[in-house]
């Protein structure tokens, strides 16, 4: 069953066509990869799904409903979560607070409750802390850094904290923009393992953009190939690897080297 459906979406900035009639469906519980050369419009697809860009034409369905009119924060509240290509952590906060921020839409404390704090807000914060410690910090193995400011962390750890924040949103679908870019082999392996665990243990659907072909082919269930804003093909990793257009446009270049 499809949890996310992008139907005939086009996007343009002024005269620049970024996406042209792109359609695809993501099934529940699968890992869906988007690949393509730089500038193919991969990140723009994610930005349209999460509501940061408005498409010129076309619709996005999430859990069967058209979400075109929803602002990004409403989409997040409906179970859509995201990590970013250039890490977008909040440098003014500790690791723990960054992760807690992810749980924002699941909390209820309002302005007055926050100013007063004691009582409901306190209980909510404690319950949140417990849940984050047990479900996320333990799972991603970041116990030792929880009190550190995020700015002081190594790149690989920052990526992991960003994943932790995305998980704290308790999403149904997780959009990941280049989760292993710039990582070494070991960190990449760790991240791949986390991604598979997220899919299997938490039953979260994952859409990811990546340039690491080996990882893509290893872990994804479906692969979408974009080139110059157009969909080349979409299928299982095996099908995609054999597709002549793809070899020509993208993988072929690597073969020639």
């Amino acid at each position: 069953m499809s949890i996310l459906c992008v139907d005939d979406v086009s996007l343009a900035f002024g005269g620049l066509e970024v996406l042209c009639d792109v359609s695809f469906e993501v099934n529940e519980g699968e890992i869906f990869a988007i690949i393509g050369p730089n500038g193919a419009g991969k990140t723009s697809v994610l930005n349209i799904i999460s509501g940061f860009y408005r498409p010129k034409k076309g619709t996005v369905f999430f859990k069967g409903a058209d979400i075109g009119h929803l602002t990004p924060d409403k989409r997040a509240a409906q179970g859509m979560s995201r990590t970013f290509q250039n890490i977008a952590l909040y440098h003014g906060m500790s690791v723990l607070d960054n992760i807690k921020l992810g749980a924002h839409s699941h909390l209820k404390t309002g302005l007055m409750g926050g100013l007063w704090y004691w009582g409901a807000a306190h209980r909510e914060e404690m319950a949140l802390r417990k849940k984050i410690e047990e479900d996320i910090i333990d799972f991603l193995e970041i116990e030792t850094i929880r009190k550190q400011p995020v700015g002081s962390l190594a790149y690989g750890l920052q990526k992991r904290v960003e994943l932790a924040r995305a998980l704290a949103m308790r999403p149904e679908i997780l959009l990941m923009d280049e989760p292993v870019a710039g990582m070494n082999a070991e960190e990449t392996e760790d991240m791949a393992r986390f991604i598979l665990d997220i899919k299997e243990e938490h039953n979260i659907t994952i859409v990811l953009i990546e340039h690491d072909m080996q990882m893509i082919m290893d872990i994804s269930d479906q692969v979408l190939v974009l080139n110059f804003g157009q969909k080349l093909t979409c299928g299982t990793p095996d099908e995609v690897q054999k597709h002549p257009e793809v070899i020509k446009a993208y993988l072929g270049r690597e073969k020639n080297q």
């Binding site: 977008a88 921020l101 924002h104 007063w116 807000a121």
Partner: peptide
């Protein structure tokens, strides 16, 4: 009251808006 505010989601949302308002919105903050 001000100190309290920053122990809850409201204060965290403020700081998120200051640090990166766009990604804050994608994190579910109105």
């Amino acid at each position: 009251a001000a100190r309290n505010l920053f122990r809850t989601r409201v204060g965290r949302a403020f700081i998120a808006i200051r640090d990166r308002d766009i990604s804050a919105e994608l994190m579910g903050i109105s």
